[in-house]
Amino acid sequence: MLSNACKYAIRSILYLAIHSDETHKIGVKKVAEEIETPQPFLAKLLQQLVTNKLVSSSKGPKGGFFLDKKNKEKSVWDIIKTIDGTDKFDQCFLGYLPVMMKTPDLHIDLYLLLKINFNDFRDKTIASLVEEIKENGTVISLKGFNN
């Protein structure tokens, strides 16, 4: 449902949220290696995220990408809106109207499931997501993530 670009953006932001701050910036090469993403593609994505104030960056010998407090208050939904847009979320999930008419229960069940998940995307900040990961001792393996 999400594009590869959007998945890479989410993964890179989570990586930066866990491993960077204003005093410890990370270069695109390191992020690309860690999340196994093509570096040129990730560089363009990170610039788009910087332009939209989802990621911060600084230039120079000690420069790189990082998340500040304002960045961490953004939600996963903000990332999705920036990279993929929201058009596909405003349409029938099943793709066409006749399915809804033939199987309205299925359509409603899927709609409710998606609505719950999208509310999580909208309501959960990057900071709260990272905090949950740390509290639960959950390890996010960013390598090999292709769902």
Results as ranks from 00 to 15, higher is better:
Lys143Gln: 08
His107Phe: 09
Asn136Gly: 14
Lys74Gly: 00
Leu114Val: 03
Arg11Cys: 13
Cys92Pro: 04
Leu129Gln: 13
Phe65Ala: 02
Pro104Arg: 07
Val50Gly: 02
Ala43Lys: 13
Val55Trp: 14
Asp78Glu: 09
Gln48Arg: 12
Ala9Trp: 00
Leu110Met: 07
Val50Asn: 09
Glu22Ile: 12
Lys29Tyr: 06
Ala32Arg: 07
Thr125Gly: 08
Asp84Lys: 00
Ile18His: 04
Leu67Phe: 04
Leu106Asn: 12
His107Cys: 12
Phe65Asp: 01
Leu14Asp: 01
Phe145Thr: 06
Gly27His: 08
Thr23Phe: 11
Ile83His: 12
Ser58Gln: 10
Asp123Arg: 15
Thr51Asp: 15
Ala127Thr: 13
Gly60Lys: 15
Cys92His: 10
Lys102His: 08
Ile35Tyr: 01
Ile80Trp: 03
Asn117Val: 04
Asp109Thr: 10
Arg122Gly: 03
Glu22Met: 09
Ile80Cys: 02
Phe145Arg: 08
Phe121Arg: 08
Ile108Trp: 05
Thr125Cys: 07
Gly85Pro: 00
Ile18Pro: 03
Leu112Tyr: 11
Asp78Ser: 10
Lys74Tyr: 02
Leu114Met: 14
Thr23Ile: 07
Thr37Gln: 06
Asn136Glu: 14
Ile80Gln: 01
Ser3Cys: 01
Ala127Asn: 13
Lys102Ala: 04
Asp105Leu: 13
Val139Ile: 14
